[in-house]
Design a protein around this nucleic acid. Structure first.
Lengths: 220, 220, 220, 220
DNA sequence: GATGAATGAGACTTCATTCAT
DNA sequence: TATGAATGAAGTCTCATTCAT
């Protein structure tokens, strides 16, 4: 248990305010002054904690990523079986975005297409974070749960792409509490992915040969 | 065959230049002056053709969408069977982005998250464009090719989300000519989606007999 | 009877259009393009007739002044007696402004405070025009109708100042057809001015003796 | 005695500078940069105190009107009799313009014909200010000093119109220290107005009968 | 530690005006 | 004669950032 220094607390306040402001108005349309007002301090104070507007932006995901990663790790420990882990990951990603729309907005709508962000350490953390998915898929391939010809990177792209797509849509329509919520897509996505990667049960549990014989009556 | 007026030709020049500039530097980091230089005209001339920087931005996708739609329609005419049409669409979307990376960049990295763009007619055209996918999927469900419990909107999200994800990645790494190219994902994506929506061929479309024989040699 | 050449006719069209446009939007807020549109020609055509926007502005009063002067001269010929002439002039000034609000607006709201206009020949014409008032007053002083200590320039300032004041007010409220119309002020102003300049009829023109007798009946 | 904050002092500096600059070059021909240079600050600083060039313009009259009103009120307290008050007002108006030619210029040559200014609160204050004249005239009518058929609004128009006319002339010729100075017109204007509104002393103070007898010697 | 005050840099946009057809 | 096309010059305004208190 860490007692946060005042300095840290103030820093967090600013980060939360920036997350909100940037998320609502967009990074480019937000001013330091907006963030300062939201925080309740003066413009100058922002610069006591962050050297530039951009650094402030890039600081936002750091803790979110760490937190999300911790949560996911913790949950995966409860889960055995790669199939179940895949679902756990999909669920967690959707849930984290849904519970943190400000972060989702900044992450998916600002940082994702920011080349400078790609050069930060935080981006490397993000990449590392997403490697969990790769690892789980590879694990599934090794245990024989998943097909050998699975391309883990492609599968990850489908998972992340689909989730990000629905989250962005949801954000663009101001996060309605309806069936377009991210979490609604968990099981459909899980099933689709599993269909793609899982070995056919029948194929898996039995070794057999098939001889297909023309069916006399045919059926188009 | 239409002869373009000088005015139209100049307008197209500016659009092409803007597409390039906005794509390379990002919309917010580009200036009208940059576009003017790229076009080879003065700043003022830009305003003779577009009333504002934003209008210039929003004008970029219009023709791309029309063209892409025409091409897709034209190709789909050659294809029978919804399954094949799905592949045709995935192929076309990937190909159009891959062949037009400037447009891809603006479309996916700037406009996709721009709320004002959502209010334009062009956005409505885009929505209408993407409805093709819905219609094909529904068609497949009606003909019995696809499962009745398919959610066309979800499937479309997966298709578009996955494609957009890999295209953005590719763009962020400056469009390398390697296996990360969008078109590389066509068949994996097609197969994954088909696995999810297709009725089991064996179970449905054919009547056949299976003779299961003990496998002497084992099976890898 | 002069037959106006096409050139002259076109020039007049432009002048009328400019008068309207400048009057409605103000000179500074009007563009050459506005005038061109109002005239129904291209921007460039304006420059065929006037070398600059300012020259166009300064050309507007010329004909108005000439016309107004002709009309006034013509009317004054019908009038004998300086007193009546004063009224004629006040009437004419009010009437011309009331009948030509576009001209009034440009004259009183734009040109009156434009130092460059003071250097034009048209301005000299205007000065000459207003000298009519001086001359009439001086004439009245010579004939003994007006007091010898009258300051013609001051009187003219009162006449013009009062008229311009009420015209500007009327223009600022968009020329309502009510009692604030310029012509409503003709007689009040005439009377006031006459009170100030006329020799006291009783005191001056006649010698008489007064016998003051107690008033038996009282007098309210 | 109020100690002005630095902020207020700086604001006043800017206002004074703007008054001078706008007055000398005209509002439209002046730039924010001109005002900034005259103040001795950067362009941006102007915007710290005024949100736009127009707001800066509209802020100029506020304090002048307040000050002028205070001065007039204070002086009127020393004066008894509406006749004397009328003179006091004419004197004050002329004097304030003469002592504050920058303000006079902006007020009479820029704001007077600016429709947007008419929508400001400051304009309402101005209207209220000028109502003093109306009230004094009405007072004079009630006390019987002025004629019952006096139109207070017309009289005010004459007073203001005449003063504004001579002030503008004086300003247009760069405020010479000669007989064209506004204050030179105080008594002529006062006399003229009084002639128009005052009841004839003789008529008022005495009741008498006049017998007019022919004068044997004749006169003039 | 916090901030009030100030600013440099630069962007978008407007418009009078010219040139070649 | 008329104009379509183009532009140079300039101005307002914004904002991230710094400095001195």
């Amino acid at each position: 248990m860490t007692v946060k220094s005042l300095k840290e607390a103030r820093r967090d306040q600013i980060l939360k305010a920036a997350e909100k402001v940037f998320s609502e108005k967009g990074f480019q349309n937000s001013t330091i002054s907006d963030v300062a007002k939201e925080t309740g301090v003066s413009d100058t104070t922002i610069y006591e904690y962050f050297s530039s507007k951009e650094e402030l932006l890039f600081s936002i995901p750091r803790e979110n990523i760490e937190l999300s990663k911790q949560m996911l790790d913790s949950h995966l420990n409860y889960i055995s079986g790669t199939t179940n882990k895949i679902r756990g990951m999909i669920y967690h990603l959707c849930k984290y975005y849904q519970d943190n729309p400000f972060f989702a907005s900044i992450s998916l709508m600002t940082l994702k297409t920011n080349k400078k962000f790609m050069e930060t350490d935080t981006y490397k953390d993000l990449i590392a974070y997403y490697d969990i998915i790769i690892n789980v898929i590879k694990e599934g391939m090794q245990t024989g749960e998943f097909r050998e010809d699975t391309d883990p990177y492609f599968v990850r792209s489908v998972i992340l792409g689909s989730i990000e797509f629905v989250v962005i849509r949801w954000l663009m329509y101001n996060c309605p509490s309806d069936r377009t919520q991210p979490l609604q897509n968990v099981d459909p996505l899980f099933r689709l992915v599993m269909n793609g990667v899982k070995k056919d049960k029948g194929m898996k549990n039995f070794n057999f040969r098939i001889k297909i014989e023309p069916d006399e009556q045919g059926d188009e």
